[in-house]
Design a protein around this nucleic acid. Structure first.
Lengths: 374, 374
DNA sequence: TTGTATGCGTTATCAC
DNA sequence: GTGATAACGCATACAA
């Protein structure tokens, strides 16, 4: 039988560009591969002089241990993944930030995948699962049936921005109560009739906001609309198109609760182009409290949700599951942020409004009224 | 010597929760591991009946081949990575979108890393390199010395939004010429004196825009400022703070070329809070043509750069390098987008302005004047 | 068409 | 302290 070391070396001679392995380093340092490994991992004591030689050899050969081989023997990828519907917009951006920060903190690598508009999602997500020690799965990115069979031993799953399913823990923000609260606020402003702009079937979050909207109306003894104003997406143009149509008709609503800030901004532009003034002719609210909300004209009354924290907590929960702990679903607080698009008076001028509202600000300071719900 | 198959099986009996391997599947299907592998890879013909049995066994055991083991033997990760300074803001979001889309297209996984505000960046990036078949490195995320030693065989690098270095190809957008053009536009508007708001040392892009700014002034026979107005970052608040100070002094400029749209938006707010009207008292320009640019009041004159395409091209270039091809640096076109913050008259009202400008729109349609540069 | 045997590059368990 | 050597889970060249 040919000696492993010798074989490698002879091959190396033929092709200098091959990536070196422990064997080359060991040979050059005049030690065994076990010692090389010990030096790099610091897993056992090594004589100073020996260590020195190994380090030199590794340096000279530009050797770095193969993550693949290491992962194989250690049964761990040292990486976690997150599945988004989409990568666009301030919401996902913030979530990624939190997720990535938490992962890097623990020296894990981060894989990302967007599913929106792609087919064979199950294959893509399955592949992602094969490359990680666990996955965070967001909203409606993956069909429920597939999620449950994804959560096999070795691939813990944490759900994000959606309800738990099959005992798989979720991290999400309060929707129903804040939706009820912000709708109630418009009711107090005397809005009637009111409508909800957004597609409940597009995301569990929106479905809950729609529920809260209706509940508020019912509690106020009013008839809630049976259908929302579906606009086909989460971007400004979707809100714009839906509002142009809606506001042109008879019996137009004078209070619009929108599924997110982008939609709300589109709605405001539509109102403006129709000669309607916000909030005098039409009150509008958003959701997320994204950076643009405070800068809109008028400043947007909305619901603050801790987007970055959602990402952080999801990652943290995932690590807990990876560590074998039981994890429970957590619901983060959200809070109504009153600005002017609802009809409230502007606060005293203050430059602090320009600072982007971030998750570090709790509760949001750029308002005159704040209500928390969970 | 103990038989490998038998050994695995006996261990399996002790701990049912262990992840199955080819050996368990092969045993259950009554075939060799080679056949199991062939069935799953489709690498060689297998009798229909045999294939059936293998598939059944795999299904029953919930077996999925280990990516780690596969990668080890195939000498490939099937994944690429991208290093960002930061994950916030519309610019990086778009770049990620393009990068991820291109990767998924080729069935590669995507790893991301942000370096901003972290120490031991070299370790983080080195680790990322160990887990991928190649890396895209953006701007000033990684010190030059380290980049060159990162680009070892097996880990091709492509630079993004920065000049090439040490023969490593880069993908970037034209800066100098467009900066010269947009500055020239303000000169035509009669702005004097003018200033550049941004930190050239923070990113190679800004450094080039600053160069273009100065060149335009020199070509117009004017004295260019020796220093830019450094604001310490890329967000609205940075622009705001810098502008508040700058515009309060004597001899205030009436033309401000900003390093990006966010800064420009902060500058506009500062002007407003000081009672200055844009563009009458002060002309302002941005860079990026991010979604907010068209929605600002007044709409922002800026430079459109194809952010998503930058991400796509960087990924494509990386794949070419992975395939062993030689790759050259490419410079993508940018174009000046004239709106109103420079002093030009508003175009006829048109709802199309609301649609987010995306890279699919070439050249940008939401303007009355457009000039391309490369 | 299928099985045997070997290597991929590590870490870790033994001996010495 | 250090060196053999056995896994880790797969793909594949070579036989049969």
């Amino acid at each position: 039988l040919p000696d492993h070391d010798r074989q490698r070396s002879s091959r190396l001679r033929r092709d200098e560009r091959v990536r070196p392995s422990v064997y080359e380093v060991a040979e050059r340092a005049g030690v065994s591969i076990a010692t090389v490994s010990r030096v790099l991992r610091g897993s056992a004591p090594v004589a100073d002089q020996t260590r020195e030689r190994v380090l030199e050899a590794a340096e000279a050969l530009h050797w770095r241990p193969s993550r693949l081989a290491r992962g194989l023997v250690e049964r761990s990828h040292g990486a976690i993944g997150i599945v988004f519907p989409d990568l666009a917009g301030p919401y996902y951006t913030r979530v990624i930030q939190g997720f990535e920060a938490e992962a890097v903190e623990r020296r894990y690598a981060v894989l990302i995948l967007a599913t929106h508009g792609r087919d064979r999602v199950d294959e893509l997500v399955g592949d992602l699962a094969d490359r990680t020690d666990g996955l965070v799965v967001m909203g409606r990115t993956v069909p429920d049936e597939f999620i449950t069979e994804l959560d096999r031993p070795g691939v813990p799953i944490v759900l994000l921005a959606r309800p738990s399913i099959g005992g798989i823990p979720a991290v999400r923000a309060a929707n129903v109560d804040s939706a009820e609260a912000i709708t109630g606020h418009l009711i107090e402003h005397g809005c009637q009739p009111m409508a909800f702009v957004g597609d409940p079937e597009r995301s569990p979050d929106v479905a809950e906001r729609w529920r809260g909207f209706r509940r508020a109306l019912r509690k106020a003894g009013r008839r809630a609309p049976t259908q929302p104003i579906r606009c086909g997406g989460f971007e400004a143009e979707h809100g714009y198109k839906a509002a142009v149509e809606l506001l042109a008709g008879d019996d137009r609503p004078d209070g619009l609760v929108c599924a997110n800030d982008e939609i709300a901004s589109g709605v405001c532009r539509a109102a403006e182009s129709l000669g309607l003034h916000v909030p005098d002719h039409l009150a509008v609210t958003g959701w997320d409290d994204s950076p643009m909300a405070a800068r809109l004209e008028p400043p947007l009354t909305t619901v603050h949700q801790p987007m970055r924290t959602l990402g952080e907590r999801a990652a943290a929960a995932l690590f807990d599951r990876i560590d074998g702990q039981r994890v429970r679903t957590t619901v983060l607080r959200t809070s109504v942020v009153i600005r002017e698009s609802c009809g409230c008076a502007p606060p005293a001028t203050d430059a602090s409004d320009l600072t982007d509202p971030t998750d570090s600000i709790h509760p949001p300071v750029s308002t005159d009224q704040t209500r928390g719900t969970r």
